[in-house]
Structures are given as C-alpha cells and as structure tokens.
C-alpha cells in the first residue's frame, strides 16, 4: 500500500470542501480525481502533499513524502532547462537528469533559458521534475494544461512507466489519459452536507490551534 486515506475531510479558507473521503492506492495504481471546478481537487492534493492540514481523518502516505506538481512549475526563467532540472534532482539527492530530459523530449532544449520556452515546453520541464524526485507517489494537479496531444502522449507514457515500476499517482485532470490501471474518483459525492458543515470557525487557523 502506498497511500491510504481514511475518512478525510479537507478545508479551504475555513470552509469544509470534502468530507468522509476514504480510498487506498497500491503500487501500479493511479487515481483520477473528477469533479466540477471548486469541488476541492487542488485542496485535496495539497492536503495529501502535506502543504495544508486536514480537517479530520488520516492520511498514511510513503515515509519519504510525495512528489507534488501544481499549476506553477517552479521553473526559474533565468536558468536553462538542464540547470532547472539539475537543481531539483540535487535537492532530492538524485544525480542523473538525462532520463528525465529524454522522457519529455527536452534533450534539444537542455541549453535553452527557461524564459524563452513556450508554455507547453515549460510545462514539460515542470513534469520532467517528477522523474528526478525519485518518489513513488505522484500528486498531479491538472498536469496536461497547455500540453499538445503529442506531449500528452509523452506524459501518459511517463505515468505508465512510473506505475510499471511500482509507483502510484493521484491525478486531477479533465481529459482522458488512456491509463490502463486508473480508477476514477468523483469528488462531487463527498461534498459535505451544506446544512451540517458550512463554515468551520477557527479550524485551520494556526493561532487557534491547541486551544479547543
């Protein structure tokens, strides 16, 4: 088991978005998060990544943490492609960036400054970062934004390779990636009852923690 979520409730800006969410994710499995805008896909992924606390419930993830990828790529415009990637590789204690460059067709762009990349190329660089983290669990928030169909195919291949190596992924996306071992999870079902929940006063406020 790579990720196990039990009775999770998440909140954003003091408002509970999802409640009673439970699922497990084993090696080689991918979970596709579905649901309308604002249902809490990003909030769920940030909570799973440990960037924000859960309102309730348990998250049992891998001890080393997860590789998180959001709308922002963490790409520095004045560094070139290889320098950007090598930085994230070194932070994660990895050495080799060549496979990541190849997987996302960035070899010919390796010497280019990131500010001269197109939006899709920058996105590919952001996704190549996942390969140099060496982590088993990937949490991906709308990974295919600004990718063309060829790049989406590259990305799907990278996910398949990751799953084949015993990795797992939670992906919030609106398009079909054609993954063989993916399950869909419709988050709209887990919206809390508006009468019962609504605004949770004080929850998630760091200054009120430990008082109640």
């Amino acid at each position: 088991m790579i990720l196990s979520v039990t009775d999770l409730a998440v909140l954003r800006g003091g408002v509970a978005l999802l409640g009673g969410l439970s699922f497990t994710l084993g090696p080689g499995e991918a979970l596709i998060l579905r649901g309308p805008n604002g249902v809490g896909k990003t909030t769920l992924l940030r909570t799973l990544a440990g960037l924000q606390p859960a309102l309730a419930g348990r998250i049992d993830g891998p001890a080393e943490g997860a590789a998180y990828s959001s709308h922002a790529d963490g790409v520095k415009p004045t560094l070139n492609v290889a320098e950007n990637l090598r930085f994230w590789a070194e932070i994660h204690g990895q050495r080799d960036i060549a496979p990541a460059l190849e997987a996302f067709d960035l070899v010919n762009l390796a010497g280019r400054e990131a500010q001269s990349l197109s939006a899709g190329q920058k996105r590919r660089l952001g996704l190549a970062r996942l390969l140099v983290t060496g982590r088993r669990l990937w949490l991906l928030d709308e990974p295919t934004v600004s990718l063309d169909s060829a790049s989406v195919a590259l990305f799907a291949a990278a996910i398949e390779a990751h799953l084949a190596q015993g990795g797992a992924a939670v992906i919030a996306t609106h398009i079909g990636l054609g993954l063989a071992h993916a399950r869909d999870l419709d988050l709209a079902v887990y919206r809390p009852d508006p009468g019962a929940a609504g605004t949770v006063s004080g929850a998630g406020d760091p200054f009120l923690e430990g008082i109640a």
Partner: peptide
C-alpha cells in the same frame, strides 16, 4: 511549494 514537499 515544491521545496516544502522536498526532503530539504
């Protein structure tokens, strides 16, 4: 965000 989820 990425640094916060990194081992650093």
């Amino acid at each position: 965000d990425l640094l916060a989820t990194s081992p650093a």
